Simulated assay, not measured.
Amino acid sequence: MPDDTAPTTEPAAPARKIIHIDMDAFYASVEQRDDPALRGRPLAVGGSRERGVVAAASYEARVFGVRSAMPSVTARRLCPDLVFVKPRFEVYKAISAEIQAVFAEHTPIIEPVSLDEAYLDVTENLQRLATATEVARAIRAEILARTGLVASAGVSYNKFLAKVASDYRKPDALFVITPAMGPGFVEALPIGRFHGVGPVTEAKMKRLGILTGGDLRARSLAELQAIFGSSSGYYHGVARGIDHRAVRAHRIRKSVGAENTFSEDTTEFAVLVERLQPILDKVWTVCASKGVTGRTVTLKVKFSDFEQITRARSLSLPVASRESLAHISLGLLRDVFPLRRSVRLIGVSLSGLQHGAGEEPRQLGLAL
Rank of each mutant, 00 (worst) to 15 (best):
P7S: 11
K163S: 05
V54G: 00
K159D: 07
L174A: 00
P361D: 01
A6W: 12
T133Q: 14
N158E: 08
V63D: 11
R140T: 05
L161V: 07
Q363H: 12
A57I: 04
Q354H: 11
A104H: 14
A270L: 11
T201E: 06
V63Y: 07
T261G: 01
T212Y: 11
A28Y: 06
V197S: 06
R207T: 13
D167K: 10
S321P: 11
G198I: 11
A153Q: 01
A13E: 13
P179N: 10
S156K: 04
V53R: 02
G52H: 08
N125A: 03
L315R: 15
I21D: 06
F269K: 14
R77F: 05
A25E: 02
L126H: 12
Q32Y: 04
A180H: 14
L216D: 01
T74C: 09
L353D: 00
P171R: 01
R62E: 10
T310Q: 09
L330I: 09
D281E: 13
E268K: 13
I242K: 11
K159Q: 12
V122A: 10
F160S: 00
S289K: 13
C287R: 00
R240P: 05
G148A: 03
V102W: 04
R219A: 09
R169F: 11
I139P: 03
M70Y: 04
D172M: 06
A326G: 13
A13Q: 12
A15L: 10
V292C: 07
R33V: 03
L368N: 13
G65F: 06
G52M: 05
L364H: 12
V30M: 07
V30E: 04
R128C: 11
M70E: 01
R41G: 08
E134H: 04
L353I: 02
T8R: 13
L82W: 02
H355M: 06
T293M: 02
T285C: 11
G182Y: 02
F103D: 05
L224P: 09
Q127V: 08
L211I: 09
G52P: 10
H355N: 13
V292N: 02
L353Y: 03
Y157L: 08
L144A: 15
I139H: 09
I19G: 15
Y235R: 03
A162V: 10
R62P: 09
